[in-house]
Design a protein around this nucleic acid. Structure first.
Lengths: 188, 188
DNA sequence: TTATTATAACTAATGATATTAGTTATAACA
DNA sequence: TGTTATAACTAATATCATTAGTTATAATAA
């Protein structure tokens, strides 16, 4: 009494394909019709794997957050203090650059308060908390700092992606200057 | 040879109505069908005022950016230096809280690189540059700082709106702490 | 080996949407 | 009073998500 008919898709494969679609054409093109076409099945068949378009967007948001988290965790290996923060920051914006659609998917969760989505996001928060521990911030101040760190990274990536930074001024330099300034101010 | 038949809508009224729709139900509910219903006309009639859904989203993005700019310019009156930056910051996040849909509309421009959209955004950039002048930052450093300032504000507002800050930790306090830290670090 | 069963695909149909083409009615002006 | 520009309209189409019900396959049980 087990499954495995015809094509034999699983959710992981579907999300990977949806991620490719997102990176190539943007999230607004991640429709059930386009996804089904790429998977060579019919749109209604997708309902066997997730709960309609909102379900896909939720799963894809979680998938995206987890991929970002992996990238950040990897960047944080073998470094500490300010250099760890800089390494994570670069990894973050580089992910958004390399995978604009997957990054965009993090913003398409139908309910960002959803428990599963929050749990995925909490991993990144925890990683950040651990890295900021080196700065010996006291009590709530450390949590305010985490909010600032996340705001800078998401704001920077989002604005960069949407053409918000028009000046011919090096983006990586901006990020590093901004992040070092923030850290200096937080630790002072 | 002038117009003015039947209802007599103009673009300003339409955008105001669309903004109300956005604030009440979110941008995904700002459809031509819903907008036409609220305006008591038929969907195709909207094509006399803008170029389809992409056109509406572009106009609404510009409208939103301009409303934010007004709010910020107002908040910057009669203050300077750090206090001006704090005042603008609070005005920014408060606008996003009071008008979540209109704020969201800034992200729905079909082409963020569009000339008209960029021109609207440039006003906010220029306002920021003027306020940061008080810090006597030299050369490009000032421009990097502007990028940081905007990243923090957009990132903070966006994350707050999407339920990214779950801890029972005062949000206004976070913003002020983060912004003061950034300014301290930038000016140091 | 054969029968059962769970399940992942399918077809068909529906409702909502944006959009286009072509029409009508109204208000300003000559 | 007649002309004209234009903002509304109706009708029709294509695309999409979604639901209901069906079919076919592959793993297990007999």
């Amino acid at each position: 009494m087990s499954p495995r008919p015809k094509v034999g898709l699983d959710l992981a494969t579907i999300l990977e394909t949806a991620g490719e679609l997102a990176d190539q054409y943007g999230m607004q093109e991640v429709t059930l019709a386009n996804l089904a076409k790429k998977l060579m099945i019919r749109p209604p068949s997708l309902y066997n794997h997730f709960d309609g378009l909102p379900g896909l967007r939720k799963q894809l948001a979680i998938y995206a957050i987890e991929r970002i988290n992996e990238e950040l965790a990897n960047a944080a290996i073998g470094v500490s203090g300010t250099e760890a923060v800089i390494a994570i920051s670069k990894a973050y914006v580089n992910f958004a650059r390399k995978h604009p659609g997957i990054y965009e998917a993090t913003l398409f969760a139908p309910d960002p308060e959803d428990e599963d989505v929050q749990r995925a996001g909490a991993k990144i928060v925890n990683l950040t908390i651990r890295v900021l521990k080196a700065f010996n911030l006291e009590g709530d101040y450390s949590l305010h700092a985490v909010r600032g760190f996340r705001s800078i990274l998401h704001g920077f990536s989002s604005l960069e992606q949407r053409g918000g930074f028009k000046l011919s001024l090096d983006l990586d330099e901006s990020l590093e200057i901004v992040m070092r300034a923030f850290l200096k101010g937080i630790a002072a």
